[in-house]
């Protein structure tokens, strides 16, 4: 499978906010209401296209419970993007964002793109966190923000793809050192730095998602 770039993501947030469901919706386009509990880390991958280039997303899904932080932390290193998820129907998951953010900032590279996600937007009747609050938090901390529903798939594609776009833009701007894999970015095997962008082809991935 050929790709121009590989971006590594990590999904973080309190337990039960829907991290694994978001990943499953993105990679398999399905919703599993009762997902197996994540012990340690799980993994998913999918191809997307940005600016005509095939980009592979390699996504690490982590366990949300506090005790697992020591394991989770080692996955921040080498991540180019992070999806920080809370549940709009549970205020406490929103209140913990600061701790998550501190943890992420402390253990990741400084250029990591962080997307704040308010998940379960389908449960409007049980909403405890206003959309504006999410937006304000994101603005204050320099994050991108979206509300999603892993159940209805609303905004799920966009959340993953917009994060990739942001990372891609940073590469174009020369912010990311793409030759350092510790930044969570890898250039595709057949895409040497000299001809990158010219050699785009091959669908390769198990799911050929399209840029929104």
């Amino acid at each position: 499978m050929s790709y121009a770039y590989l971006f590594k993501y990590i999904i973080i947030g309190d337990t039960g906010v829907g991290k694994s469901c978001l990943l499953l919706q993105f990679t398999d386009k399905r919703f599993q209401p009762v997902h197996d509990l994540t012990i340690g880390v799980e993994f998913g991958a999918r191809m997307i296209t940005i600016d005509g280039k095939q980009i592979k997303l390699q996504i690490w899904d982590t366990a949300g419970q506090e005790s697992f932080r020591s394991i989770t932390r080692s996955y921040y290193r080498g991540a180019a993007g992070a999806l920080l998820v809370y549940d709009i129907t549970r205020r406490d998951t929103f209140n913990h964002l600061t701790t998550w953010l501190e943890d992420a900032r402390q253990h990741s590279n400084s250029n990591m793109v962080i997307m704040l996600i308010g998940n379960k937007s389908d449960l409007e009747a049980r909403r405890e966190v206003k959309k504006e609050e999410g937006e304000a938090f994101a603005r204050e901390h320099g994050l991108i923000f979206m509300e999603t529903s892993a159940k209805t798939a609303a905004n799920v594609e966009e959340a993953f793809i917009n994060t990739a776009k942001e990372i891609y833009q940073k590469i174009q701007d020369g912010v990311f050192d793409i030759n350092n894999e510790a930044n969570g970015i890898k250039i595709g095997p057949q895409h040497s730095p000299t001809n990158q962008g010219l050699n785009v082809g091959g669908s390769g991935g198990n799911q050929g998602g399209n840029c929104c």
Binding site: I39, G40, V41, F43, I71, S74
Partner: peptide, 12 residues
């Protein structure tokens, strides 16, 4: 990394 597959071996 070992933790990628073996965490659950021990924990469960």
């Amino acid at each position: 990394d070992t933790s990628m597959y073996a965490s659950s071996w021990f924990l469960t």
